[in-house]
Each structure stands twice: as structure tokens, then as C-alpha cells.
Amino acid sequence: MKSIFYKEGIKLRRALAAAFAVNAAVLLYSYFRVRVGFIMQEPALLWLDIIERNAFFFDRISVPLAASAFILGFLQFYPESSGRRFRISCHLPQNEDLTLLYMLLFGLSSVCFLWLFDTAGVMLSASFFFPYDLWGRIPSVMIYSLFFSVFLYSAAASVALEPSWGGRAGLALLLCGGAAFFGVSVYRPSCWGAFIAFAPALLSLASVFYPASGYRAGGGR
């Protein structure tokens, strides 16, 4: 696993650095936006507005997080499919499914770290402006962002890894609809909802093994 992580780290270090930088920039921007709001307006009125509109005050962070996950998935696996480079990974002297699993674990860990970074950043920033009643709900909102990001990462990985263009189109068509299961309103924690969002995220991780199987069947010729 260490070697696979080493390889993936070399491949993705610049992309990861860029992702963290972009997310940090959006966090900072959101922080200052909220800060300006508090300076211009009565703080209690701002709290009430957020509560009554059921709005997430750092909602912009979900966009760079999702985009980062999607791009990471693509950048991690497109180099593997271009020129059928994935054949090298298939022939490494270990179980092929394990090789792919380690690659996915790397990507998944990266997405999770990015999510943790964002969630911690949002909670820390929010604690300057809001009471616990508001920022304590952040994990219940952000958890859907995590599942959505995992789903996007896996979908991008699957489509990028698929050796044939027709297969890519088919996978994209089948997977894109799954994104519909992550659109939830904020502040409504729900075990059932979390499960409904978790299921496609988990399935999407498993789906990456499908295009990988195409390489042993002559794909990418």
C-alpha cells in the first residue's frame, strides 16, 4: 500500500496542493463575506435571517469541494487509461483488485482530508460569528457534501479509467443521475437521508472496479 500511495502521491501532489489552496481561498472569502455582513448589519438580524431562510452560511464551500473531488478523480485515473498505462498497474506483483483498492483509498483519503479541512475551517470561522446552535449543525450539513464529493470522485475515476469511449459514455449516463441523491436541504439531519446519500457513494466506489476489468478483456486497444 505504501508504494501505491507513493506513486499516487507523486501523480497528484500538485493537484492536491491546488485543491487545498482553492478551498482555503474560498473559506477565507466566505469568512470575510460573513464578517462584512456582520459589520454592515445587526448580528442578531443576520442570525435570524439565516435561521428563517434555512440557509447555510458557508454554502459556497460545497462547490470547490465537489469540483476538487471530481478533478482529483479525473487526474488520478486519466493518466492510467491514456496509453493503457493501467496495464502496468495490473501487472504489479500483487492482487489487481488490491492495487486498485489502494489507489482508490488514496483518492478517497485525499477527498476526506479536504472535506475535514473544509469542515474544520467552516466550523472555526463560524464559531467567531454564530452560537453553537448554528455552527453545531455544520457536520450534519457537510456530511452530504462528503458523500457527494466521494460520489463525484468515484464517477470521475470510473469514466476516466474506462478504456473505451462508448463505455465512458455509458458509465457517464448511468452514474450522472446518481448525483440527484445528494440534494438535501440544510439543517435536517436524518439517519435515513444519510443512508440514502451514503449508498450511492459506496456503490460508486465499487463501480470503479468495472472499467478496470475492461483492461484484462482487451480494452484500450
Binding site: 449516463l173 448511468l174 443521475g177 450511492p200 456503490l203 465499487a206 463501480s207
Partner: peptide
């Protein structure tokens, strides 16, 4: 897994 996501 892919089919299940498609079905959903």
C-alpha cells in the same frame, strides 16, 4: 454496483 446506481 454500476447498474444499481443506474436503477436508482
Amino acid at each position: 454496483a454500476v447498474i444499481m446506481i443506474g436503477v436508482m
